[in-house]
Every structure is written in structure tokens, then in C-alpha cells.
């Protein structure tokens, strides 16, 4: 969970506020929790998904937020912008990770211990990922071989590509 205020650091402080019997929970990073005051109480009202849906992205005018970076980045699969992401703290779809990669890497470096996954790989989906990568690489190599008139090598690569395509098709 990211800090609801800065969306930059992990939320490590959880607190509950009761206003007129309405209970709300906040998750903040230590820094924001320390700086929290009335400003935060105001800013937090502008959170939320309704905002996103309504396209009322006027959070620059609310105190407590710094001007958003990564303006203009947009996921063309789900339509979420990086700006919207910083507001809700969640991505819209798996493809957002590709589309926001330039902004994402520094963020991940801050909140995670590294940017390369080293854990479990799913047996089925994971092997496809690898096969697709290999295929991509071979196709490029093939083009180069053809361009350089290395036809023997090109034939070899074509066979490898066919084999991979068959594996992927299964």
C-alpha cells in the first residue's frame, strides 16, 4: 500500500479519524503522517475514484499535493494517465506497467528493494513470456541474416522460429 498523501513511499502509519460519527482510515508514510495537519484533512477529501470517473482532476489546486510529474503518460489499453495513477495509487490494468515504465522505475526503486523480479515464475504464463521474448529476438536476427545474405544461417533460424511458434500455439 502506498502512502495516500504523497504516493511515493510505502504507507507505514495507519490511523483512523472520526468526524461526525463517520469513521475514515488513512494510510500514510511516516513523513506525511508527521506533517499531517488540517492541510491533509482537506486534501484527503479530494481523493477517490469518483474524482477519477468524473475526470475532475483539479488536485493541483488542493493543498498537500506537489505538482504531478509524468504528465502526458497514458496507458492506451485502459486509458489511465500517470497523473490519475498518482491520485488513486493504483494502476488501471496490467499494461499500465509497460506504459508507465519510465516513471515507474524510479518509484519502484524507492518503494521496493530492487526492480528485477527474482521470485516465483508461473509455469504456464511464465514460459510463454520467455518463448515470446526468444521469438522476438530470433525474428530480428533473421532479418539481419537476410539483409547480410547469410542464407544458411537464416534457414536455421527459420526452423527455430517454427519450432517456437508451434510450442506457443499449443
Amino acid at each position: 500500500m502506498l502512502c495516500q498523501n504523497c504516493h511515493e513511499r510505502p504507507a507505514t502509519v495507519h490511523f483512523t479519524k472520526i468526524v461526525n460519527g463517520e469513521k475514515s482510515e488513512y494510510r500514510l508514510c511516516e513523513q506525511c503522517a508527521r506533517e499531517r495537519g488540517d492541510i491533509f484533512a482537506k486534501a484527503v477529501n479530494s481523493f477517490g475514484f469518483n474524482h477519477l470517473l468524473g475526470g475532475l482532476l483539479n488536485f493541483e489546486s488542493s493543498p498537500g499535493f506537489t505538482a504531478p510529474a509524468g504528465k502526458g503518460l497514458r496507458c492506451d489499453v485502459c486509458g489511465m494517465t500517470y497523473q490519475q495513477f498518482t491520485q488513486v495509487g493504483q494502476f488501471g490494468c496490467p499494461s499500465c506497467y509497460e506504459h508507465f515504465a519510465p516513471r515507474l522505475e524510479p518509484l519502484l526503486r524507492r518503494i521496493q528493494s530492487a526492480v528485477q523480479h527474482t521470485g516465483k515464475v508461473p509455469a504456464r504464463t511464465g514460459s510463454h513470456v520467455k518463448l515470446r521474448k526468444d521469438l522476438e529476438r530470433l525474428r530480428k536476427e533473421l532479418q539481419q541474416c537476410v539483409a547480410n545474405e547469410q542464407f544458411e544461417r537464416a534457414a536455421e533460424i527459420r526452423d527455430q522460429i517454427r519450432a517456437l511458434e508451434q510450442q506457443l500455439g499449443q
Binding site: 502506498l2 510505502p10 494502476f91 496490467p94 506497467y97 526492480v115 523480479h117 521470485g119
Partner: peptide, 30 residues
């Protein structure tokens, strides 16, 4: 997880691992 994965194509990225809605869970998702 393995049993589910035989039927469910997971969103998985070679670099970022298992993709999650919030980047604080990405990677292992654990």
C-alpha cells in the same frame, strides 16, 4: 497458486513479476 494457474493466465512480467493493482505488491505479490 499452481493449481489455479493451470486454468488462469496470470498477468506476469519478466522484469516486474506478478503485476498488481498497487506497485507496493508487485513482483512476488506476497
Amino acid at each position: 497458486d499452481d493449481a489455479l494457474e493451470t486454468e488462469i493466465p496470470y498477468a506476469f512480467h519478466e522484469r516486474y513479476g506478478y503485476l498488481t493493482a498497487c506497485p507496493t505488491n508487485v513482483g512476488t505479490g506476497i
